[in-house]
Design a protein around this nucleic acid. Structure first.
Length: 492
RNA sequence: CGGGGUGUGGUGUAACGGCUAACAUUCCUGUUUUGGGAACAGGCGACUCCGGGUUCGAAUCCCGGCACCCCGACCA
């Protein structure tokens, strides 16, 4: 075997499984290649590694700022919930009972009352809320919590469904059902805005069907994204809880007319699952691809040096880095990396950063310095751009980041639009679902029909789209009359 | 809980019932290298998943257990 063949074989061994071959393995390969997470010794749980957690911190930072703009304040409630609290709201306990973990022993003794580890915090928070709320002047109460939760799922996959996961859960209390509903929708559009603007993930917003809605909610609103294999991923949800929990937890307030009333509530959440969506939306067969606005490292400068000129080159490299940093607020110091590693060859460094999804790579060596320029390479297209280092570099980097952000969104949007189809007959419907499409179809609005469709095709109603037009139609399964199309797809 | 598969250095693999369990890679030390996956030299690293059994002799054969992975069922 000659040298060339050896190199080619090694390259194959390091390569990521192509998407077309095995989508599931491809997804896991990306996570490993980008060093985002790994399985832990606890079944169903994962260790989020620094590269993965850095993405979560970006998400936290953007969302938390937006929540604060709305007057939402952060708080923290206990991990352990007395079992009786979880049982207060009938639909809620029925929905969560199968997947809760229960602590039965502590302090070396069996507990009088078991404690469940929160699968979500409605119950423990609302138990407290009832003492916080006396009059309409205490409302609205707007609280968010960044926390971990545990749901004992039978089958797990990193980020998308793990036994323990991180999320934010917002819980608000309002005077009227209308005000609560408006707030729930406002949070839905906030998630929509975040997904499209920052994650470059276009979503379809809508309402969940009765059988898919949150256990204990009046309405559940959702953002549904399309992955590269055509399957749907629930990106985030926002619930109008009505007065279901207020009645179960006795949350009442005195209104302006001195009448005691039950309050109206919402809850809304976005989890580390969104990172799974991010990976599956943009990554390619070379590794992770991150949109610049959410990438922890937005630019990596790879200097080209040898033992003789190393110090001189590195000095110039840091000057270049400062030039970008000081001229554009979008690129703080920690978002620009300089690869000074001396034990790796230039090629290995390039592959390393490509795997990690860094949006822009800048190559900077003696030839560039002599010419007063540097070479920028886009992660999304691989295109090389030469820019003058003097004066224009920070503008070029900023524009390039915007162009990458836009390109990633446009590509995902095109994929979503071109794979969303209408079906008017059962045959059309099943064929489209089999082809991995999002299918807009008429439905007779019964849970029975929904269940039958799921059993026969494994497709579920992802949502009743917010922008669904009123039109006369017939249910694709039963032929009964229907007034609007709903979104069906196979889901993660 | 069904169906399928796998357990050997950190990772990926090899070894007919028979030598001190081999090879590659990672990692560490040095030297030389650096515009697309470097080379050489040296070094660290395993009770071959666990427990029994058969045998002069077991990573290998038999029995039992356990763990993990994939496909279902479950899942806001």
């Amino acid at each position: 075997m000659n040298e060339k063949e050896t190199r080619s074989r090694e390259a194959d061994e390091k390569a990521i499984t192509p998407r077309a071959t095995d989508y599931s393995q491809w997804y896991l390969d990306i996570i490993r290649a980008a060093d985002l997470a790994e399985y832990s010794s606890v079944k169903g749980c994962m260790v989020i590694k620094p590269n993965g957690y850095a993405i979560w911190e970006q998400i936290q930072s953007v969302l938390d700022g937006k929540f604060k703009d709305y007057g939402v304040r952060n708080a923290y409630f206990p991990l352990l919930i007395p079992e009786r609290l979880l049982k207060r709201e009938a639909a809620h306990v029925e929905g969560f009972a199968p997947e809760v973990a229960v602590v039965t022993h502590a302090g070396g003794e069996k507990l009088e009352e078991p404690l469940v580890i929160r699968p979500t915090s409605e119950t423990i928070m609302y138990e407290t809320y009832k003492d916080w709320i006396r009059s309409y002047r205490d409302l609205p109460l707007l609280i968010n919590q960044w926390a971990n939760v545990i749901r004992w799922e039978l089958r797990t996959k990193p980020f998308l469904r793990t036994t323990e996961f991180l999320w934010q859960e917002g819980h608000t209390v309002h005077q009227t059902v209308d005000e609560a509903d408006i707030f729930a929708r406002k949070m839905l559009s906030t998630y929509d805005w975040f997904a499209s603007t920052y994650m470059a993930i276009p979503v379809i917003t809508g309402k969940k069907s009765e059988s898919e809605k949150f256990a204990g909610a009046l309405h559940t609103y959702t953002c549904e994204a399309m992955m590269q294999d055509g399957k749907a991923l629930q990106f985030a949800t926002s619930h109008n809880l009505g007065d279901n929990f207020a009645k179960a937890f006795d949350i009442k307030f005195l209104d302006e007319t001195n009448t005691l009333q039950y309050a109206w509530q919402t809850s809304w959440g976005l989890s580390t699952r969104s990172i799974g969506g991010l990976i599956m939306t943009h990554s390619d067969d070379k590794g992770l691809v991150l949109p610049p606005k959410i990438a922890p490292i937005k630019v990596v400068i790879v200097p080209v040096f040898n033992a003789d000129n190393k110090e001189a080159i590195l000095e110039k490299t840091h000057e270049l880095r400062l030039e970008i940093e000081k001229n554009s607020s979008a690129f703080p110091a920690h978002s620009i990396a300089v690869d000074e590693r001396g034990h790796l060859r230039i090629g290995e460094k390039f592959f390393d950063w490509e795997k990690q999804g860094v949006p822009i790579r800048i190559e900077y060596g003696p030839k560039d310095i002599a010419a007063g320029q540097c070479v920028l390479v886009r992660r999304d297209t691989g295109e090389k751009i030469i820019a003058k280092t003097d004066g224009e570099i920070s503008r070029v980097v900023t524009e390039l980041a915007d162009a990458i952000q836009k390109n990633l969104y446009d590509t995902a949007k095109h994929r979503l639009d071109s794979n969303t189809v209408h079906a008017n007959t059962w045959d059309e419907f099943t064929a489209s679902i089999e082809n991995g499409k999002f299918v807009l179809a008429h439905w007779d609005e019964t849970s029975e029909t929904e269940k039958i469709i799921k059993e026969e095709t494994s497709a579920t109603i992802r949502c009743i789209p917010m922008d669904a037009k009123e039109e006369v139609g017939k249910c694709i399964k039963t032929g009964l009359s229907s007034t609007k199309r709903v979104l069906f797809a196979k889901a993660y």
